[in-house]
Design a protein around this nucleic acid. Structure first.
Lengths: 213, 213
DNA sequence: TAGATTGTTAATCGATTAACAATC
DNA sequence: TAGATTGTTAATCGATTAACAATC
């Protein structure tokens, strides 16, 4: 599996391929051509072939792609064959929504610990995981071999917690706070800025309405 | 404000500009040059000027940009000067997280109604808004001039609800379900696929680790 | 073998960056 | 006016699409 310098544009499309291939697999589809897949997914067949070829040849001329094989390989590329251990920081609604979302677990994303500043929440259980006080964060991370810190807390808190996470050596964060976290370049941050998403929708609503006039 | 054929790449950057300009404004900064802003935001000054010029000239040669004015104008472009009325479908953790997130309200996104299939939730209040049964959805939307449907429900339900929303004339959806909704082309869908985001992070963790070896 | 479809190169398109003349 | 910085054109870079030879 030779991979280097794959653009983020390609990476962003992989989970969507993975999703569609999973569905096709469940429907019992054995093989698919880039042409057929392109019709289902509404992208060009050319793009599909280019994307897959970034990672080596998964198909066979004259046949197409084997759905199950392709599904598995894309899963591997995405690292879904490995387990990831997460800590969730912020046990509010959003944090609980994520903790309760079973499918992440199925993909190897296991929540090891949940933390919150709110004393009222400490000791409470979310999906069988006890909420811990923030003071225990560093020790817990070191002891449990944590990969990913999930930040479901307000932005000021997120900046502080991100610094703490960096100090105890965390290598990846999934950030739901509406700030850009300032971290060393070897620390990965994947942002989910919900308000940005909503604003984009708002822009497009406006655009559509004014263009009709 | 002459706008046409603005690429989604540009639109995607607007909320981030808006966020930074809001912070600068709060800090009392009056003017800023594309050069200064580029250093803070870690993008090129050239891109900033190009982006703003898609919407006409907001700056002044030799001076730069007036922070407050630019902030207001970008807000208008994003449609944040107008009110939007939303219905939330799915009163689970994720739905509640969104309902409780005050800042959306500040930006003109007002939740008018909350719906759920779960009989146990009906009548319960989330942020002073009563949860209603799904049967009332269509009437409610027609009576309350709803802009946006927010789907915080599992994927099978989302497909059905999206069809119902289309039928009663909704023009925009904010979709948190892990499906691509199939809607007429004049209906806007903004997707938040959390699992896609997490998979991207997973890919990059893997990449980083294997590249070290 | 003939037909189908990939893998891959080449052409096109769009987005980003650089450069600089216009102008405050 | 001189200096600064935009608005805008031109150059570069990267991503997408088209085309086709390789090959199953």
């Amino acid at each position: 599996m030779e991979e280097k310098g794959i653009s983020q544009a390609v990476i962003s499309r992989l989970p969507r391929y993975f999703r569609y291939l999973g569905e096709l697999k469940d429907e019992g589809v054995e093989r698919i051509s880039s042409q057929e897949l392109s019709e289902i997914m509404k992208v060009t067949a050319s793009q599909i072939r280019q994307d897959f070829n970034n990672f080596g040849g998964f198909g066979q001329q004259g046949y197409g792609y084997n759905v199950e094989y392709l599904y598995t390989e894309i899963g591997k590329i995405l690292g879904l064959d490995k387990k990831h251990h997460l800590v969730l920081i912020g046990a509010g609604n959003l944090g609980q929504a994520i903790a309760n979302y079973m499918n992440f677990e199925r993909r190897g994303f296991l929540i090891s610990g949940i933390f919150d500043v709110n004393a009222a929440l400490i000791g409470k259980k979310v999906r069988d995981i006890e909420v811990r006080p923030m003071e225990e964060l560093e020790d817990f991370i070191r002891e449990h071999d944590i990969d990913i810190g999930v930040l479901t807390i307000p932005k000021n808190a997120a900046v502080d917690v991100a610094n703490r996470l960096v100090k105890c050596g965390i290598k990846a964060m999934w950030n739901f706070a509406h700030v850009d976290l300032n971290v060393p370049e070897d620390v990965l941050v994947e942002n989910v800025h919900l308000s940005d998403s909503l604003m984009k929708l708002s822009y497009n609503i406006n655009r559509y309405e004014t263009s009709k006039e």
